[in-house]
């Protein structure tokens, strides 16, 4: 009885508070609608900030670099071999030594990191027992967060004496030293993207192969890895992007001498990995902090940054296309 009474009372009181008024159905609540509209617009501004920042970077690189491009010409930057930006007479703005230095160090790093990364990724994704995987994955994550300056330091104090000893050099800071330490830098990117890609291959593919009597390795070799190919290549591209843009490790490991890192061997021009090189990134780091703002030298550093920007932009774009292609391929089938 009392319960019913209580219920009735509650009902009555709530009736009085009735929230929805039928007449308001078409009556826009001005306050909440305007607020929601403004909030959506605000988030749109946040959302498009990435485009804005990317364009802003490009704009400033071009704005600051245009002086040097006009005065010196882009071909001098791309093909010139002399870099004497602040020399009063006979100034040179040839960035070719840096371009070659970057390409050599990066290529060297990839030659090491590609097999290392891909085989490790296959091992983690397909072969390793769970326990081993649980050790490997955090190890790769820790490698990925290693500050580059620490890797550079290790290259300087431990790796370079070894290189000097092995090859009988007076100075172990060479393109080779930089390549080795840079491969450690690119490794986590290659491993994690390749591993994701291998894992995204549907189980049925594998089961179908096992059902046909293929061994696990045959399945990996003929089914899984080919299906994951685009993703693996994308991982390599991103690793390349990471390596070519890396500053501190190469700055500390490569010796930074400005010279053409080439040698003649039996009449053929070959890259010389046992000589000191300076990369595009290292040159900006070395000269950028004390160059007079607005000078031609300052402007020429932005041209170098622009070259770097274009290289990494293209590499990332290709990686992007490859990853989305793989996703489409695997979801369509």
């Amino acid at each position: 009885m009392s319960l019913q009474h209580a219920e009735k009372e509650v009902n009555q009181e709530v009736e009085d508070l009735k929230i929805v008024n039928k007449e308001t159905l078409t009556q826009k609540s001005f306050k909440s609608n305007t607020l929601d509209f403004l909030i959506e617009k605000m988030f749109f501004v946040f959302g498009s900030i990435a485009i804005f920042v990317l364009l802003l970077i490009l704009f400033f690189l071009i704005r600051e670099g245009s002086g040097a491009i006009r005065e010196v010409g882009i071909m001098e930057f791309l093909t010139g071999t002399r870099w004497y930006p602040s020399s009063p007479q006979g100034a040179g703005y040839g960035a070719l030594p840096f371009i070659l230095g970057s390409l050599m160090v990066t290529t060297g790093a990839l030659v090491i990191a590609i097999p290392w990364g891909i085989f490790t990724a296959i091992f983690i994704a397909e072969i390793a027992p769970r326990r081993v995987r649980e050790i490997l994955k955090p190890a790769v994550e820790v490698l990925a967060i290693f500050p580059s300056v620490v890797l550079g330091f290790i290259a300087l104090v431990i790796l370079s004496p070894i290189v000097a000893n092995v090859f009988g050099l007076s100075n172990g800071l060479t393109a080779l030293t930089a390549s080795v330490i840079l491969s450690v830098m690119a490794l986590p990117t290659i491993i994690s993207i390749s591993e994701d890609s291998i894992k995204s291959v549907p189980k049925d593919y594998r089961e179908a192969a096992y059902a046909l009597g293929a061994t696990r390795w045959e399945t990996i070799k003929t089914i899984t890895v080919p299906a994951a190919k685009s993703g693996i290549v994308a991982g390599v591209m991103l690793g390349f992007g990471r390596a070519v843009g890396e500053t501190m490790t190469v700055l500390m490991a490569a010796g930074n001498a400005i010279n053409m890192p080439i040698t003649e061997f039996l009449g053929v021009t070959l890259p010389n990995f046992l000589t000191s090189v300076r990369t595009l990134t290292a040159n900006i780091a070395i000269e950028g902090s004390d160059v007079p703002w607005g000078s031609l030298h300052y402007s020429s550093l932005f041209v170098i940054a622009l070259i770097l920007f274009v290289i990494t932009f293209i590499v990332n774009l290709i990686a992007d296309l490859l990853i989305s292609r793989q996703r489409r391929k695997l979801t369509n089938e």
Partner: peptide, 20 residues
């Protein structure tokens, strides 16, 4: 139509509609 109003009408307040 709901209470004589077409719910797709641009005047309709979605918050009110979904409350009722």
């Amino acid at each position: 139509d709901y209470h004589g109003v077409n719910i797709f009408d641009s005047k309709v307040n979605l918050v009110e509609l979904r409350s009722s």
